[in-house]
Amino acid sequence: MDKKFYQPFCRSTKDIIKEMAGIEIEGMESMEEEEGEISSMGVSSIITFAGTRKGRLLVDMELGLALYLANTILGEAYTDAMDRMVLSTVSEINNIVSGNAITSLNNSYSMDLRLAPPVVFTGQDMVISIPKINSLSSQGYTEYGKISINVAWEGGNK
């Protein structure tokens, strides 16, 4: 699938984190093909969508960044990844990133995409696998920790 179906998610991630939390993500310019599975850096969120095609956005970040985002956006001092408000912050960011990206895809290519609710999870040594579907990943860095996104479309990127 064409790069134009992946790129809006990179742009949207950078823009929205900047707008909501006032921090710049360095990197996250280009996307590389992902081989197999992804080791979570701490807190992960998955949003799937379906329309004329089906796909998925995975946003993964280090715990320090997740806590920083929750604390900055909500103005509280959270210290625990399992706190519902921390997890909800990450899932709401993913929701807004995906909403923005698929809005632009819907308007440009009439894809009629709709979002499933966000899934968010945290734990030790998590590995995420996306069977039978080609995906592209992009890494970014912030002062408070790393972030990466992975975009997958059924029908692949070949």
Binding site: N95, I96, I102, T103, N106, N107, L115
Partner: peptide
């Protein structure tokens, strides 16, 4: 106030 905002 929505994250989704396509023309439709």
């Amino acid at each position: 106030l929505s994250a989704m905002g396509d023309d439709d």
